[in-house]
Write a protein that binds this DNA or RNA. Structure first.
Lengths: 352, 352
DNA sequence: ACATTATTGAGACACGTGCCTCAAAGCAAC
DNA sequence: GTTGCTTTGAGGCACGTGTCTCAATAATGT
């Protein structure tokens, strides 16, 4: 087997090592290491020599070997709402499923559940995290001043953070989740096209209209309905606050008072409650229903024809993308744009 | 820093190494190596001891370290049609784009173009490949006896193969691409729903109806139209054979002879030709048009409203999935089901 | 010129695994 | 017991990089 040291001519098959780099730069391997890992006490001129050599021979550090030498492990934490909800269940399932793949890359993931309605508790949990315990944290939490501050301090302590699904600040670059405006707009287009010309009113059901995601979905939906389907009239959002009795009440009230309802848009991530509320008032009515996320409940509704289409994001992709991004952050690398873009997917009975 | 050898108590943080494994199994590291790498000359009893220890301490070999020791590189080849087509261009773009990410995993990819209409040439190219040159080959080629045989022999020579996009045999497990029946069915559902009740005829345009992909898409489309939208009448497929003049002629003939055409389904992967043929006969007609794949041409048509929806597969995902699968094949590993499933995606103006 | 400091080099060992050699031990048949 | 064969152990070197120590050299100030 060939060895680089015995074969000084550049081999196009083997990639250059730090040894090659040292040789070409005319310095020692110790100095190469000093430059590569940004240690101080190296003359500017020497740094330039090494960098020139890096460019010349196209050196790229072998991350696997480096991590092996450092015994590096990536410890990531997912901060998620309390479970019980179906969409969250899918997320959890994929975190566990991907565990085996991650462990090959020395990535360990931990999940911590927090009460989404208690910003102080969330902040406290974030405050308990340091570089001693985790290298990166993916946070799914509503946007509040307390949480925003806790995240800020976490970053100052050197822990990498990543808004996960629930978008925090308008840091469009570093976050994992779909464009909710586009998701709402897509739901609107499907609604309009499926109704094709038929006029009437549209019921919109949300969990709470205060979250950023709800606002964005609603605005995207309205934009499309107003622009492309002016014969449709989207009613003000109904808020369930996640309570089934309230959902039942407001839905049945709405159907009692409104006459010509032709479509229902469930913009909440958890469609289960709204769907069963609708089942009460809609024995077998002709009404286009669009919902979000692929969960056991929505898939069943799709199959039995209750729901016409789903606008979804792939939970497995969300999880893997979060891990890849956290890893890139801790390595100071960048990720592949096209791989990390979370698509606004449309799911019907035929492309389950 | 802790060292495993000095700290015999099981550390939950560090994963067990071959050294730990040898200690627990009560054998030497050499024997562990013999068992792990399936060398012969080891007593059955000893093999069992080691395997028991593997299970006991949950040993998983550190692939990065192993590949480092072996100086392993993965050399994969993509055998693709001659370029020029837009969908293929997207594939190529993503192969090159992913190069940087792959190289971190010691994966190098090469692309070789072959004439799709010359099965003997394709077979010849495949015959020239051995383990000396490549570890795995992703093959996008129409299904012919010559190609099938060449693939068979390639596998016998120890080179791993993977049908890529164009499905070869019904080896449903090991192949990269979408379920074309589902893709056709999805196109059918969109067509039916967008027309919602309006009766009429549907034009179906294919490149050639002989390929497996075309057959499957057509059968999926017909199944849905017949079952769910009986008021629609899908006409026999028009075949362009990839020739623009022929496309223009057959499309204009069809529109001259048929009266009530309400929808057009372009099931060819390259929609450019059919689209411009349609533009000639359809100055501004009300007709639902569904096409396949996201290319510059179809995206433009979507934006200007010519096309109503696209049924697509993500080219970046296809490429990365192929590489992951080839890597898993050469490592004798399995892949994450949910990650490798290529989704039948629906793209409209709002979720570009 | 000298002392002092800043910079560099040489070398070692580590990470976890693969792969090789050589010797030692176990086992069988005679 | 001797011979020959099979199985195992001990140990070393390699992969590419990180991270030490200690010495050697260069640059600086006086």
């Amino acid at each position: 087997m060939l060895k680089n040291t015995q074969n000084p001519s550049e081999s196009t098959l083997l990639r250059p090592t730090t040894r090659d780099l040292a040789r070409v730069a005319g310095v020692s391997r110790a100095t190469v290491d000093r430059v590569l890992n940004g240690r101080e006490g190296v003359k500017k001129k020497t740094v330039d020599k090494v960098n020139a050599a890096i460019a010349e021979i196209g050196f790229v550090r072998n991350l696997a070997a480096a991590n092996l030498a450092k015994s590096r492990t990536y410890r990531f934490l997912f901060v998620l709402p309390h479970s019980g909800e179906q969409f969250l269940g899918e997320i959890l399932r994929h975190i566990h499923e991907a565990q085996t793949v991650f462990s090959a890359d020395m990535v360990t993931t931990t999940v911590r559940h927090v009460d989404q309605n208690d910003p102080f508790k969330i902040a406290a949990v974030l405050a308990s995290i340091s570089t001693e315990t985790f290298d990166g944290v993916a946070i799914m939490a509503p946007e509040t001043p307390q949480v925003r501050d806790a995240i800020q301090r976490l970053q100052e302590r050197g822990v990498h953070t990543l808004p996960f699904i629930s978008n925090q600040a308008p840091v469009r670059d570093q976050w994992v989740g779909i464009d909710n405006h586009a998701a709402g707009a897509t739901a609107g287009t499907l609604m309009g096209r499926f109704l094709s010309g038929r006029p009437g009113k549209l019921v919109v059901i949300a969990d709470s209209i205060l979250s950023r995601a709800s606002l964005e979905r609603r605005s995207g939906f309205d934009a499309v309905i107003n622009a492309d389907f002016p014969h449709l009239d989207a009613l003000p959002s109904l808020e369930t606050y996640g309570a089934q009795d309230r959902a039942n009440r407001i839905v049945s009230e709405t159907f009692r008072h409104q006459s010509d309802i032709v479509g229902i848009y469930i913009l909440a991530s958890e469609a289960g409650g709204p769907l069963s509320a609708i089942a009460n008032v809609l024995p077998s009515q002709r009404c286009v229903i669009i919902a979000h996320e692929r969960t056991p409940c929505t898939v069943n509704a799709l199959i039995d024809g209750t729901v016409d289409a789903l606008v979804t994001q792939d939970p497995g992709h969300l999880v893997r993308s979060a891990v890849r991004k956290l890893r890139a952050l801790t390595d100071g690398r960048s990720t592949l744009q096209s791989q990390e873009k979370i698509r606004v997917e449309i799911v019907m009975k035929t492309n389950l």
